[in-house]
Simulated assay, not measured.
Amino acid sequence: MFRRLILPAAVLLALTTGCAGAGQEPAEPSGGATPKITLGFSAWPGWFPWQVAQEQGLFAKNGVQVELKYFDSYTDSLNALATGNIDANSQTLNDTLASVAGGAEETVVLVNDNSTGNDQIIAKEGVTSVAGLKGMTVAAEQGTVDHYLLLLALEKAGLTEADVTFQPLPTDAAAAAFVAGRVDAVGVFAPFTTTALKRPGSAPIATSADFPGAIPDHLVVNKKLLDRDAKGVQALVKTWFDTVAWISANREKALEIMAKRAGVSVADYETYDKGTTIFTLEQNRTAFSDELPARAKQISDFLVASKLVDAAPPLDGLLEPKFVMAVQP
């Protein structure tokens, strides 16, 4: 299962019970070896470039030893970062805010992308607008980014979640239920949009393109990593921009790598291009300077108002722009 927001209660549970080794300090390398950074990612077009970085040796080129860990369950990656079982993770801003609200200590150091259409509310044939969902059953993973998108879309249409029957399902199961005709609409993200749209006559009635900037995706690090290995974090950020440049210069090979990791054809993967806007270095700098602080406050307020979190997360220390500012173009 691939999942992109976790509820604070689940984060708190992970923080208090944890996985094996939760709460332990990372072991120090022996003999002066370069510390290894464990970087998590999962199924989202804006994060598959990390697979390219690994296969093309771009982490090593920047002098950082990385254990790249792919999570079938995005929720598991969020828990792993929250409990300190990985050092860094690829996750959305609203997911990060929810984790911080649950007690996690995390910092955003890079904008990978903005979702510009690859998060979608897809409805059955005959339903052509969000207003048409009134009284219908809509599936999405509860507390996830596409639950968040659903709430944004309902609000824009003058509705609330009480106007629909919400069916909480994991993202892959939600897509399958929609294709099987068990629900009337579904909230999913790529590559599960491809699955959902196999239902005859189905079509998106709302996407992240309708809410510009609402769903930014990031490299987020455990604050302990910042204290332990700021140089390594800088190398991760530099590697990202090197990877984006490599993909631009070697598009055919890059698409093969990313499509294979996504489990889809190259042709299907190419359809995700417009729905995910990869951020340049200049866009990163602008985002940290002008956009992200306000966006974080806006999302925080919405999460509280929608009761997706119990209390607003602390925003101090959430954003750290120094790493993108230090990258040489």
Rank of each mutant, 00 (worst) to 15 (best):
K223P: 00
D229S: 10
V183S: 00
L197F: 11
P170G: 06
V186P: 01
T193D: 14
T193F: 02
T171G: 06
D184G: 04
L169V: 05
Q167P: 00
V233L: 08
E161Y: 05
M258W: 07
A176T: 10
T195E: 08
N222V: 04
T207C: 06
D184L: 01
R228W: 06
A175H: 02
R228V: 06
R261I: 02
K223Y: 03
S208P: 03
I205Y: 03
T271D: 07
V233R: 03
E155A: 15
G263W: 12
A203T: 10
S208H: 07
P204Q: 10
A262P: 00
A173R: 10
A180P: 00
A174P: 00
L255C: 06
A209G: 11
F166D: 08
E256T: 15
A162Q: 15
F166P: 01
L154A: 09
R251M: 07
G213A: 08
V186M: 03
P191K: 08
T277K: 14
L226E: 14
F189E: 09
A185S: 04
I247D: 03
A173W: 00
D268K: 12
G263S: 12
P204M: 08
V220F: 09
A254S: 15
K223C: 02
V244C: 05
V164G: 03
Y269H: 04
T160V: 08
G181Q: 07
A230V: 08
T277S: 13
F192W: 09
K224Y: 07
F192L: 14
L197Q: 14
L169M: 13
A259L: 03
V233E: 05
K224N: 14
